[in-house]
Design a protein around this nucleic acid. Structure first.
Length: 703
DNA sequence: TGAGATTGC
């Protein structure tokens, strides 16, 4: 790199290499297309397996699992731990007697890909000896599957039906360093199970970073009736990875505008460095679109940037655009992929040799003073920065350009780790799960890391308001509370759903409403060039009662469209097929769950044109999210619970309406550029006190 | 009046 802005490089950094490492195998699986029956490829796979670093530690691992109840495996990326550890356990007999070895992942795709890979290595059909089970797709057999990949959320929910996880002999919790709320909750449950199952159960915690001692200490117990020969119950095992060096470059002085710096760095890499794609980490979609448009202008006005191709990558991007990101570029073309942190862990893009890191991320922060989520742009942690850098060295030595100084990086501005979710998100799902499993004292519960008390009390308060927790005993209410723990929904939406079959007889519409809100709401997209056409189309679906009924209308129209026509239909109406497809899957799952809960003869009930019962049903779950039009202003609202002034989100049908309803309930409130409410439904204030007298008699004085 | 990070049951 010729630029003088950067200096020095750091000693090489642990990062991915693997020809067969976990992350990139989906590509080898699909692209190379070698099949399990092919002798040459079988030998190739076998040979690859033996070359993995994990293979050298096979005996050591099996010895540790024999001797200790909990083993923390520290394996660098590319070590093969996620594919090999379950196979070693299987070969050593841990699946004997019909027991199952389960390996959990934080993300669905990872679970599916790993199962594909391991089935291939073991030369079995997927869904037989090796399978996986994630939301919406169970490719496993209750009789035959011995190695099962799952998401940690799925396994956690299995505890409701089988609290001792009695089918399983070993649970491998992979990627534990992610510290998602589900992972932390699952680890706490596994510790309880480990103590109760007296020696016939093992937990393996697999983590990439240096949190090993925390995990080991957590699983260590002094109960010497549990451990085999010694008094230890937990140990640590390290597996080295395969490492390509990554050169890290820092700015010599902090930059004023990171977007300008990002595009400049990309063009300089393009002009002065060898082949390889560039991955640029930016905090959000807006920043990405802005950087790409700047870069496109530069490409248009310059002769030597012809072969640079800017692309965008973020979670909500269309399948079409996503394909461009993953497909290899044409010969002689270099991709410059501007991405959010999806590319940090969730997806792997092959061919990346250069990384440009803005050092920023957008993250949701829950403000316990106002009970409002804020989407804030924050400095990443040092472990995130290392993870991002590692993305440049997956296939050969790489280079990473950090758009901040080395001094800044080493300072406390960049924290060592991300704050784990248990300390910063709503704890409602965890509280429901623990209560459902009979944990009565949540404050004194044995967590891996105790959550802040404000978050715990906020969750308990909300659940009590909704009637899921008995405020006298503090236990889950027998029917509502337990059902809410089972449903894959926020408790507010869960209450809407259950009330639709219990009281309001509008299940058909309510399932649609809840599925749409659970899938993220707003299915309408408004492309820059075709604003008026898109808004015109949206008007056809609009219902004046509000966004939620508009979503229901759209969802029902989608379901009535024949499956093979749906993509086309969505494109023609400026609707997100991804979102509507997701809500249709949720819809099917919720119908099935209601039937299993004994409401099978109520799930077809429909309110038809009687929108009032549907609106009341929505309000019955969202009553605490109520707002009143500010009469002095006529376009902003005040939250009834705390008087906070909020704005209508521009995606709402009420945003541009001349006459706005006096009272509304909403599905979400979040502070971005302003405090916005979205997923809005008009209500009659009399319904609120009718539906939730306990809530509104107490709060009356505030309004 | 003017807009969005990400994952999961």
């Amino acid at each position: 790199m010729s630029t003088s802005k950067y200096k020095g490089s750091e000693p090489s950094l642990g990062c991915d290499m693997g020809q067969v490492d976990e992350g990139s195998f989906i590509r080898s699986y699909y692209a190379d297309g070698f099949t399990a029956g092919d002798t040459a490829s079988k030998m190739f796979l076998h040979e690859q397996r033996r070359r993995l670093p994990a293979f050298k530690h096979r005996m050591e691992l099996l010895y540790a699992v024999e001797k200790y109840l909990a083993v923390v495996v520290v394996g660098e990326p590319g070590s093969g731990k996620s594919t090999q550890v379950p196979q070693f356990l299987y070969e050593a007999g841990w699946a004997a007697g019909g027991k199952v070895i389960v390996c959990t992942q934080p993300r669905r795709v990872a679970a599916a890909m790993l199962a594909h890979r391991v089935a291939e290595e073991m030369d079995v059909a997927l869904g037989t000896t090796v399978g996986y089970s994630v939301r919406f797709s169970d490719v496993s057999s209750a009789e035959n599957t011995r190695i099962k990949y799952m998401t940690d959320g799925t396994l956690m929910h299995e505890c409701l039906a089988d609290p001792m996880l009695s089918k399983y002999s070993v649970v491998v919790v992979d990627e534990a360093q992610d510290r998602s709320l589900d992972t932390d909750t699952l680890l706490a449950l596994l510790k309880k199970i480990m103590k109760k199952r007296k020696g016939d159960f093992r937990v393996i915690i697999s983590s990439a970073s240096l949190d090993a001692e925390r995990f080991r200490g957590y699983f260590e117990t002094n109960d010497n009736t549990l451990a085999q020969p010694e008094h230890n119950t937990a140990t640590i095992l390290s597996i080295s990875g395969r490492i390509f060096p990554v050169d890290i470059h820092y700015l010599t002085a902090s930059c004023e505008n990171y977007l300008v710096a990002a595009t400049e760095t990309a063009t300089k890499i393009h002009i002065s460095e060898g082949p390889g794609d560039i991955l640029i980490f930016l905090p959000g979609k807006n920043e990405i679109e802005q950087a790409i448009s700047t870069l496109n202008d530069q490409i248009d006005s310059s002769n030597n940037l012809d072969s640079l191709l800017p692309l965008a990558m973020y979670a909500g991007i269309s399948a079409e655009k996503q394909k461009l990101v993953f497909d290899p570029p044409e010969r002689g073309i270099r991709k410059a992929i501007f991405s959010t942190n999806v590319a940090e862990t969730a997806v792997t893009i092959d061919g990346v040799v250069y990384v440009v890191d803005s050092g920023l991320v957008k993250r949701r922060i829950f403000d316990t003073d106002t009970n409002i989520d804020r989407l804030a742009t924050l400095t990443i942690s040092k472990s995130s920065a290392k993870q991002r850098a590692g993305r440049s060295g997956r296939t050969r030595p790489g280079k990473t350009y950090r758009l901040y100084t080395r001094e800044a990086y080493l300072s406390s501005l960049f924290p060592e780790h991300e704050i784990p979710e248990i300390c910063r998100v709503s704890l409602v799902p965890m509280v429901l799960m623990l209560k459902a499993l009979g944990v009565s004292n949540l404050v004194r519960f044995d967590y891996l890391q105790p959550p802040p008390p404000e978050l715990l009390s906020q969750a308990l308060e909300l659940l009590a308001e909704l009637g899921a927790i008995d405020s006298g005993t503090g236990e889950l209410t027998p029917k509502l509370g337990l059902h809410l723990a089972e449903l894959p929904l926020s408790p507010e939406l869960g209450v809407c759903l259950l009330n639709s079959v219990r009281t309001f007889d509008c299940a058909k519409e309510a399932i649609s409403a809840v599925s749409m809100l659970a899938a993220g709401g707003d299915p309408f997209f408004v492309p820059g060039g075709q604003r008026s056409e898109a808004l015109e189309d949206k008007r056809d679906f609009m219902v004046q009662e509000g966004d939620v009924l508009t979503f229901v209308n759209t969802h029902l129209a989608y379901l009535e469209t024949p499956a093979r026509m749906r993509v086309k239909w969505c494109n023609a109406h400026f609707l997100s097929h991804r979102m509507l497809d997701q809500s249709a899957r949720i819809h099917r799952q919720l119908e099935a769950m209601l039937a299993r809960m004994g409401y099978h003869n109520r799930i077809r009930s429909s309110c038809g044109r009687d929108y009032k019962s549907l609106q009341k049903c929505i309000a019955s779950g969202l009553f605490a999210n109520a707002a009143r039009l500010d009469p002095s202003d006529g376009r902003r609202y005040r939250l009834i619970k705390n008087g906070l002034v909020v704005d209508i989100h521009p995606s709402s049908i009420f945003f541009a309406a001349d006459c706005k309803p006096n009272y509304v309930v909403f599905a979400q409130v979040m502070e971005t550029t302003k405090v916005y409410i979205r997923g809005i439904s008009a209500v009659d204030p009399a319904w609120l006190s009718e539906i939730a007298p306990h809530y509104y008699s107490a709060k009356q004085s505030n309004t």
